[in-house]
Nucleic acid binder design. Structure first.
Length: 466
RNA sequence: UCCUCAGUAGCUCAAUGGUAGAGCAUCCGGCUGUUAACCGGAGGGUUGUAGGUUCGAGUCCUACCUGAGGAGCCA
């Protein structure tokens, strides 16, 4: 008998009357004294479960089928038939039910058929994909990842695998995870008594990457259109619903492009992603709309249908200063926008994603291009309701002398960025790029309030279980 | 790192300083082409940890641990 995914059976691609085999995990069992049991079977291939009708004539009916419960894995050979009950169009009339794996302590099986808090499910991250919510998140995450690659491929961008282990810190800020094989208890010491990293694996200090940007710029200045998509690591002691120690980031970089082209690309990318999810994962999105966030589908549609609002930092300051509400932090030109300011702009003022550009030079890193006038840089942040900053990017400083003066301003030794300076010495061109936080994107798309619940195994300060 | 809140049954939560309870889940029985099934019964507890106050602490105090929310930082 042909093995079939439940998505195929429920999707109408298998003829009524076909003999098929399905395999999966039982969600619930309901018995009828009329002589049969209903098993809700889920294999993760789609949101819905398949109803299996197992009759008392099965040789193992009373011995096994009547004891199958939530979490058991089974294989069923049977015939696909039109359902005689309401709630599903088709069901599987079982000819044989084989139990692959029992649940040995049903009383303590964590994924019982009831509502669970997300906090509890994080403690059983190895079993939570068996829930409706986390199955749906996993499928949407997959679909988004695929859509990202397809979008860039269709637009002529090459996927560049930038290194995970690096020696440099992109931002000059942000805490780094050290990569070392030195003896943690008794490391070799240098003359000043500090660990001697010249004896370490790489002969110098090494860290997990916080961004692939600098590396991907090198490939940008050879291949014109490139992007990275991989994990990044920040050892910041952040305890919020928007931060992870290990998260995934998408970073496109485009040569011969300015800030406006960069913003256009960001907008086109987000719109494409939302459109694809609405089309390809309608079943899961219906669930998120019904059970997680009633506005989520409407919000995605409005993003797809409307142009992003764009404003300069200076305009944003004027809007905030003219706002009727009070802010905890003062609004004045030169200060960075606080979370409350960003939320006001995107949630109250424009009520959809907004691109804020041209921030003061003093609050942005060295690699952002200095604008004419010298007070601002060609930076952009895309702010989204409920999430805040979902994209951060800029046109890069391509002029060597300006870059060097920025190194000086920021107190950075240019010698640490030798190869990065080379890119400005040898055939420099204007170029621009941005970073899109993958988990924040999934959070926005699904309405899931915490990024810990849109990555399979979240890593946060003090938590690296599983 | 700072601020706030919370830890009681497998889960979600009650319990005025005075005998630790309910719903769901689980198991057993009943009923039914069922589908968040329904009805009845049963089992299930070191109240996060360690101290302290008190005749008596789940409850009050101290410290610590864990979790959540927010700030900062960022994506």
């Amino acid at each position: 008998m042909a093995k079939r995914a439940i998505a195929e059976l429920l999707g109408g691609s298998v003829a009524i009357g076909a003999d098929v085999t399905v395999q999966g995990w039982v969600r619930t069992r309901r018995d009828s004294k009329a002589g049969f049991s209903f098993l809700q079977l889920n294999d993760g291939s789609c949101f819905d479960s398949l109803q299996v009708v197992a009759g008392s004539g099965l040789p193992n009916y009373s011995r096994e089928v009547l004891h199958v419960g939530s979490g058991c894995s089974i294989r069923v050979d049977g015939k696909l038939v039109e359902s005689r009950g309401r709630g599903q169009s088709v069901e599987l009339q079982a000819d044989a039910v084989h139990v692959e794996g029992w649940v040995d302590d049903p009383d303590h099986y964590p994924i019982s058929p009831k509502r669970h808090s997300f906090e509890f499910l994080r403690e059983v991250a190895h079993l939570r994909p068996r829930t409706n919510t986390f199955g749906a998140v996993a499928r949407v995450r997959h679909t988004l990842a695929q859509a990202i690659h397809k979008f860039f491929d269709a637009n002529g961008y090459f996927w560049i695998h930038t290194p995970i282990i690096t020696a440099s810190d992109t931002e000059g800020a942000g805490e780094l995870f050290r990569v070392s094989v030195l003896d943690a208890v008794n490391p070799p010491k240098d003359q000043s008594g500090r660990p001697d990293f010249s004896q370490d694996f790489f002969g110098r200090e090494a860290f997990l990457t916080v961004s692939g940007q600098l590396n991907v710029e090198a490939y940008c200045l050879a291949m014109t259109k490139v992007y990275t998509f991989g994990p990044t690591f920040r050892a910041e002691n952040s305890h919020t619903s928007r931060h992870l120690s290990e998260f995934w980031m998408i970073e496109p970089e485009t040569a011969f492009a300015d800030l406006h082209a960069n913003a256009d690309l960001a907008e086109a990318l987000l719109k494409h992603l939302f459109r694809v999810v609405l089309e390809e994962r309608a079943d899961d999105m219906e669930f998120f709309e019904k059970r997680i966030d009633s506005q989520v589908v409407r919000r995605l549609r409005s993003v797809v249908d409307q142009p992003f609002e764009r404003m300069t930092y200076s305009e944003a300051i004027r809007v905030l200063q003219g706002a009727s509400r009070k802010f905890e932090f003062p609004v004045e030109w030169g200060a960075d926008l606080q979370s409350e300011h960003e939320r006001f702009l995107t949630e109250q003022h424009v009520r959809r994603p907004v691109v804020v550009t041209n921030y003061p030079k003093a609050i942005k890193p060295f690699y952002m291009r200095v604008d004419d006038g010298g007070q601002t840089v060609a930076a952009m942040d895309v702010l989204a309701p409920g999430i805040g900053e979902i994209i951060g990017g800029s046109q890069r400083e391509e002029r060597l002398e300006v870059l060097d003066s920025r190194f000086a301003d920021c107190g950075i030794d240019p010698a640490h960025y030798g190869w990065y300076r080379d890119l400005r010495r040898y055939g420099t061109v204007p170029h621009a790029g941005f970073g899109l936080g993958f988990e924040r994107t999934i959070s926005y798309v699904t309405g899931m309030a915490n990024v810990r619940d849109v990555i399979p195994f979240p890593r946060t300060p003090g938590s690296v279980d599983f």
